[in-house]
Simulated scan of single mutants.
Amino acid sequence: MAAAFDFKKEYKDLYLPKTKPMLIDVPAMTFIAVAGSGNPNEENGDYTEALGLLYAFSFTVKMAKMGDWQPKGYFDYVVPPLEGLWWGGGFDGRRIEDKDALNWVSMIRQPDFVTSEVHRWAREQVAAKKPGLDVGRARLVRFAEGPCAQIMHKGPYDDEPATVAALEEFVRTTGRAEDIADPPSAEALMDMLDADGGVPSVRLHHEIYLGDPRRTKPENLRTVLRHPVRPASA
């Protein structure tokens, strides 16, 4: 029996960078995404609800293999890790002045066979099984990040500033500059990503969570930190 396709293992350059910074050109990918704002640490808050919706959708699609209907082109796979785009709240990549003013888009990558038809089917399934979730917030988006610098952060999330500083210094030494462009709101970004035609670019602070803080000691957490870059003279 063939092993389930694991995006982390097949695309190590995207998901398993070293603790030494590196440059990467990030291609277009498909995500199920939920936008929101506010403190992600709020108990039973909006962020927690968003994660519940993302995982409900993602595992519904994955487990289609057990039902009477499978998407065209379906293959068995490991659900990719949770990711997040962050801005606002005085956040500069290192420090956050006001977590209550943060904007975020939380997302989980989907296989390319997840089309708008599959998205509608999965939302119907989730709505039937979990009527308390607002499935309308789960949007299927596709975007590219293009030229970026990234690094693996090991340890607690609160220790990320030192790793971000190392990433920023690396960017400078390569003759590049960070190219972060904050949208006005999370919903405005989602509207841009949801627009028909083309593959938009996203230029934000990006985190990929390879460890589950509920089950992993803080010192053992691994988080990919990714920043978009451009030539310093551009």
Rank of each mutant, 00 (worst) to 15 (best):
A2F: 06
A2M: 10
F5G: 00
F7C: 02
F7I: 09
K9N: 03
K9I: 05
Y11F: 14
K12W: 06
D13S: 15
Y15W: 07
K18M: 09
K20I: 14
D25N: 15
A28C: 10
M29R: 15
F31W: 13
A33Q: 08
A33I: 06
V34L: 10
G36L: 05
G38P: 06
N41M: 12
E43K: 11
E43Q: 08
N44Y: 09
G45N: 07
D46G: 10
A50R: 09
L53P: 07
L54Y: 08
Y55H: 15
A56D: 13
F57K: 03
S58V: 11
T60A: 14
K62M: 13
M63R: 15
K65Q: 06
W69E: 14
Q70F: 00
K72V: 08
G73Q: 00
D76T: 09
V78S: 02
P80N: 03
P81Y: 02
L82S: 04
L82Y: 06
L82Q: 13
L85D: 01
W86G: 03
W87L: 04
G88R: 12
G90S: 08
G90R: 05
D92N: 15
R94Y: 04
R95N: 12
E97Y: 08
A101Q: 14
I108R: 10
I108W: 04
R109G: 09
D112K: 09
V114R: 06
S116Y: 06
E117W: 01
V118E: 14
A122D: 05
A122F: 04
Q125H: 04
A128S: 13
G132H: 08
L133D: 04
D134K: 09
G136T: 03
R139E: 12
R139G: 02
R142H: 05
A144N: 02
P147T: 09
C148Y: 02
I151M: 05
M152I: 07
G155V: 07
G155H: 05
D158A: 15
D159L: 07
P161R: 06
A162P: 01
A162G: 08
A162W: 00
V164A: 12
A166Y: 00
A166C: 01
L167M: 04
E169I: 01
E169D: 14
F170S: 00
T173Y: 00
G175Y: 00
D179H: 12
A181H: 11
P183Q: 02
A186K: 03
A186S: 15
D191N: 13
D191Y: 00
D191Q: 14
D196P: 07
G197I: 03
R203A: 13
I208C: 07
I208W: 00
L210Y: 11
G211M: 07
P213K: 10
R214K: 15
R215S: 14
E219M: 14
T223F: 09
V224W: 14
L225Y: 08
L225G: 03
L225E: 05
R226K: 11
H227L: 15
P228L: 10
A232I: 03
S233L: 06
A234I: 03
